[in-house]
Computed example of a mutant assay.
Amino acid sequence: MPGLPPGKVPVELLERYVFKRIGVGSASVLLGPSYGEDSAVVSAGGFTFATHVDPVTAASRLAGWLSVHVACNDVAVTGAEPRWLLTVILLPEGAGEGLLDELTGQVDRAAREVGAMVVGGHTEVTPGLGRPIIVTTAIGAVAGGYVTTGGARPGDVVVMTKTAAVEGTAVLATDFEAELKRRGVPGDVVEAGKRYLERVSVVREALQLAGYGLATSMHDPTEGGILGGLAEIAHASGVRVVVREEDVPVSRETRLIAEALGVDPLRLLGSGSLLATVPGDRVGEALEVLGEAGVKARVIGRVLEAPPGGAGVELVRRDGRVERLPRLVQDEVYKLF
């Protein structure tokens, strides 16, 4: 039997081996394990909480910072403000005190940025690891109704904040700095790419849209990038999403770094961009709210009704070709790691 490819496990295997094996069911679980959903939502003591756990495996020097922001993003897209964190830090054999200092410093700074507290976790040196792995659980309270990935409806439009591959740009500029410069990428582009690290949080824009009740669904595109995130929205919602390649913003730094390393920026680690579906008659309001929060956003696609079994994403390429995306979009970063 062939081994599984790196990255997210194929959806059919999740449905066969993961989603059905959940122990004892509970009426307090409002949103449990399902394809494309960023967080679980539970009710306890009269309050509603969203929680998410995520590993950072495709980054090395930025793992601490990303672990906090990626987990907090996934909680915020439900409309919950992330407040509490549990962090598991796995260090490779031979790691020195300096690495632990660097990673926990990143965790601390990221937690302070989003206003959350690390309340527990675990730290160890793990045999067999080639680089550090950090797994962070984020928990937040939902103030009003919660938002799901699977809430997109025909007639909605797809709004995207910032640019594609924010997280991927920061990771590649940091972990592949020497290789990028060797391949002719200007030093100022690499340095600018590193600073994309400062853009990976979507907490502010997600809470803004949720607070005004503008989003029918929200999603933090991580593995698989923008296209992977769109595929998860489409399949979780049972709709057809049509997006034009030319409408998806890609920054100069991202484009140059991706070209040098031979990867597709639309399929590259996407945390830092928020994907949201908004009713067509409220899109102007949504863009205004985001603009007032200092967040650039634009419409990149539309949501249509799907025929039975026809949910998915259609990508209209620049040359007019229509590409139907698979249910699971593999991330380009694994070509390099």
Rank of each mutant, 00 (worst) to 15 (best):
V166C: 06
G115L: 13
V125I: 05
L129S: 09
V166Q: 02
G130S: 10
E223K: 08
I226C: 06
T136A: 10
R199P: 00
M160N: 01
A215S: 15
G224Y: 08
E205K: 03
R195L: 11
D220P: 03
T148P: 06
T169F: 06
V190F: 09
P132R: 03
M160G: 02
D108M: 10
R131Q: 12
R109S: 12
Y212T: 03
T148Y: 02
E113C: 08
K194W: 13
V158D: 00
G105P: 03
E124W: 06
A116M: 07
V158P: 02
D156K: 11
G128Y: 13
S217P: 09
D220E: 07
V158N: 01
T126M: 08
R182K: 10
Y196W: 11
F176P: 04
G168K: 04
L100G: 03
D175R: 05
F176G: 08
L214G: 08
P221T: 07
M160L: 11
T136P: 02
V107L: 09
A192G: 12
P186M: 13
A138H: 04
V142C: 11
V157G: 00
L197H: 02
V125D: 13
A152W: 00
R153Y: 03
G184W: 09
E205V: 05
V125H: 12
E223M: 08
D175F: 13
T137I: 08
A152T: 06
A111Q: 01
R131S: 14
L197C: 06
M160W: 00
G168H: 02
T148K: 13
K194T: 12
T216H: 07
V114A: 06
R204K: 15
V147S: 00
K162F: 10
D188K: 09
R112M: 15
G120F: 15
A178W: 10
G187E: 13
G211D: 01
D220M: 06
T149H: 11
V190T: 11
G224H: 05
D175S: 09
G144S: 11
I133L: 13
I139C: 07
K162I: 13
T123K: 14
R131P: 06
K181M: 14
A210N: 09
G105W: 12
I134R: 01
G115D: 09
V185C: 00
R153A: 05
